[in-house]
Design a protein around this nucleic acid. Structure first.
Lengths: 334, 334
DNA sequence: TTGTAGGCGTTATCAG
DNA sequence: CTGATAACGCCTACAA
């Protein structure tokens, strides 16, 4: 329609310099009039990469903590900004399927979540030298890219905070036993943070494991109140389900924070929606998703330009925001 | 490596019947040994479609109501189940960009959200006969596919419920004026539901518009309490921000539900995380996302097989779950 | 500055 | 049953 060859059109499409202004204009006009857009797949076929990344977001996570799923928003946004194609899969993927995603060039890289201390996916991808980044991290992080909250420090910080306020009898409401057995990073690390804090402050260890739903957390709370009447604070590791703790405390007529303080790890949004608003260690999930995607795409671009890949490891320090759920304990004698 | 031609490999890959068992075995073995996977883009290039759909998820929604973003999970899951590639974009897309997605064959269809009564995107895509489905719906739905909660009926149902309990002075805390002006479907329809309910029950209309954040909702609540001391119930249209209403009521020493009842439209999860748990009209966002994606893919498959496209329109009826935030009003005289 | 030719990795068609 | 061969629509030399 513009009376030129395909290669000239290609040049215009890719903003090449070596096209006469007059020709470029003519071609551009034809493009506009036809509403022409180059076929993405043809491009990607010859380019040998898909300009797409995938977030492997296990539906199980969604079910459990799904109030925190801003990961997705963050990752999608970062991906879009860099002109990549954002994909997300909720099914659990087998090793076969995972490799297939790379080999078929469906995606250039993936973001992994729910990382275990020993994680076969990580081993597989690392060994095959396939690009990926993690939200979370395994035991051995040599040469791997990740972004993760420092869960160990997070629990430590919560204990430090409460102890500084004068609390001495603090319960830790940890992740379910299953998560520990599986070796889920955050479960194990929060548990370790607890143990260290106990030792550091010379406290009596009070810990109970619970499923991450409100009812289970409520039951755990009842148990704690019965077993430790002198309790003045409860620490949990997951925001939304902490509503169960609050409900149980109400039920027993325990005022928050006057009689019992409550802290958790959660997004600020979740902390703010609870009543009372929870003092928390911030879990910035949108930011984490955003950074994970950015990191992955940086990595892919480096690979594309044959640069030596930078190993990026982001460990987010614990940051406490004081809200309405914590206060110094009432003095026994006063 | 198997000593056969590419076409034979292609046949094995696609499970064609016309391959000798012996040959098939040999080829399959080579495939396994090489870890070979057919290039997705080459396939899609010749197939003339991308086997991908996109959820246009405006980041603004995320910011506002983002506790309800199970849409994404639902849509991604449905898409995966049908072996499509799920994409999501959070940037607001121009008409140009939207058309580009189709023309470049990046995606076969899209899911639109935040539909306005008069929506240029809908008009554009419908006119171009490009496949899409909506979460929400415009004024004129002839020939269009959508899934939407019946917001008008939802507000009506909440009024009916409260009136049946004996409430007569009920405030409606609607969407912000900006949303009404823009013509956002759910904003306008909830407002209409309110007006009809008022007329139906012969109530005094008490309505105030508010931004969808907790602070604005709290301010609105203060205003309502001051202006209508005899108020016995408040209806809101969005779950998470309703925490602002609850806070304001606490602040004023109004007991829920003994002195004031509160109802909203929200996911069950959000209703359950608030204290007290909110009586709500269920907004099944994961289900909506799931159905939207399913619907779209059905449509694409029909188109692929040259079937006459079925127009699917799902209007979800209002379904109330009674929780702890509502009760009959205290009798004045007793 | 422009056009020609070859290749990217599939699938479909048509011989053999 | 199997193998050439021609698309699919683009990009990158290389030649003019």
């Amino acid at each position: 329609m513009a009376g030129v060859s395909v290669s000239t059109v290609s040049r215009v499409l890719n903003d090449r310099m070596d096209v006469a202004d007059k020709t470029r204009h003519r071609v551009q006009e034809a493009i506009d009039r036809l509403g022409f857009a180059p076929r993405a797949h043809a491009r990607r076929l010859v380019a040998h990469h898909s300009q797409a990344i995938s977030l492997l977001f296990p539906a199980s996570v969604a079910a459990l903590t799904s109030l925190d799923l801003d990961f997705v928003i963050g990752a999608a946004t970062a991906t879009g900004e860099r002109d990549y194609f954002f994909n997300m899969v909720t099914e659990t993927v087998s090793g076969e399927r995972l490799l297939h995603m790379y080999r078929s060039r469906l995606v250039d890289g993936v973001i992994l979540m729910q990382i275990l201390l020993q994680d076969w996916r990580v081993n597989l991808l690392a060994q095959q030298r396939l690009p990926f980044v993690m939200i979370g991290r395994p035991h051995n992080t040599a040469g791997l890219c990740y972004i993760d909250l420092d869960f160990e420090a997070a629990v430590g910080a919560m204990f430090d905070f409460l102890v500084a306020q004068g609390h001495r009898t603090i319960a830790f409401l940890g992740r379910p036993q299953a998560a520990l057995t599986t070796g889920l990073g955050m479960a194990v690390r929060t548990q370790m943070g607890f143990k260290q804090a106990i030792k550091r402050h010379g406290l009596v260890p009070i810990a109970v494991q619970s499923d991450l739903n409100a009812d289970a957390m409520a039951q755990a709370t009842y148990y704690l109140l019965d077993a430790y009447p002198e309790l003045t604070a409860i620490i949990t590791t997951t925001g939304p389900a902490t509503v169960g703790v609050i409900r149980a405390l109400h039920q027993r007529g325990k005022a928050i924070p006057d009689e019992i303080s409550v802290m958790t790890i959660s997004t600020n949004r979740v902390a703010d929606i609870l009543i009372p608003a929870l003092t928390n260690v911030r879990f910035p999930s949108a930011y984490i998703g955003y950074e994970a995607a950015s990191m992955l795409i940086r990595r892919l671009d480096e690979q594309l330009n044959n640069l030596s890949p930078r190993i990026e490891q982001i460990l987010i320090p614990a940051q406490i925001t004081v809200r309405a759920s914590t206060a110094p304990p009432k003095q026994q004698g006063s």
